[in-house]
Design a protein around this nucleic acid. Structure first.
Lengths: 139, 139
DNA sequence: GTACAAGCTGTAGTCACTCCAGGAGCAAGG
DNA sequence: CCTTGCTCCTGGAGTGACTACAGCTTGTAC
């Protein structure tokens, strides 16, 4: 028997924040956005969290650390919650994200080369005629 | 003697947009933000631009293409306008930006490796037990 | 005269938070 | 009981660099 789902030792939002390394503001933001379920409240109106919330929040944090958008994180979380998920669905999200990252990497590498090039063209002296500005003004 | 500064054949905002490949909305946005000077207006209230505006706008576009923030672009543009600019000032902006890009590159490469790793851990089959989700849920 | 294109202003939306202001609750010490 | 100081609450505004839209006016070609 015992209680149905209620957590034995509820966490305050500050404790949850410390336990998951997600800021209090972000936790409330995720709640507003529906990524975290609305927790129960204490008599004084404070949020009370359980271990399931901590797990889900850590899941979300890891998704964000891997650069997934909140939309993707939401999708991955809902896949993780479902019974009927398949590897293929999950992998598709990851693959698309990795391809996006690769595209960004290509762009940044191109940028870095261009910046290094104009940088070496400039002596960095007291001269008021700067080849960098001339490049940017050109055409 | 001739006119002082007025352009002989003013450009409409649409023509300026076509000539610089900067969208009309962005041109008006730059004006609001003070990156472009407020242009004179026709009798009917439409913006009238000259060649100097086109040059400045192209300058801004090139800065953006190189990934500079609008704040940096503003600084570079004001340096380009000044008489007393030195190469060293300009180069400092570029160097800092390139270092930022390098930091982002490192982060993205780390991300890419992590994503590739969890991706290969997943067979992408019909199996509902997905190693990717298990990684994301772990501790 | 009548379409239709182009331009105008002002506002809201994007993403994922972050940072207030202004108040209320809560625990410990005196 | 009272104060001090911490934590928490809500609601709203700000970030960067646009982009999109509504509702209107102006200009132009036929």
């Amino acid at each position: 028997m015992g209680r149905a789902t209620g957590p034995a030792d509820p966490l305050t939002i500050g404790e949850l924040s410390a336990a998951t390394r997600v800021s209090i503001e972000t936790i409330r933001y995720y709640e507003r956005e529906g990524l975290l379920p609305k927790p129960s409240r204490s008599v004084g109106g404070r949020r009370q969290y359980g271990q399931a919330d901590a797990l889900k929040l850590r899941f979300l944090r890891r998704c964000r650390e891997l650069g997934f958008s909140l939309l993707d994180a939401r999708m991955l979380a809902s896949l993780a919650d479902r019974e009927t998920v398949t590897c293929a669905e999950v992998k598709a999200v990851v693959t698309r994200h990795r391809l996006d990252i690769n595209a960004k990497l290509r762009d940044l590498r191109r940028l870095e080369r261009a910046l290094a090039s104009i940088e070496t063209s400039c002596p960095g002296s007291d001269d008021p005629r700067c080849p960098i500005l001339e490049t940017l003004s050109k055409s």
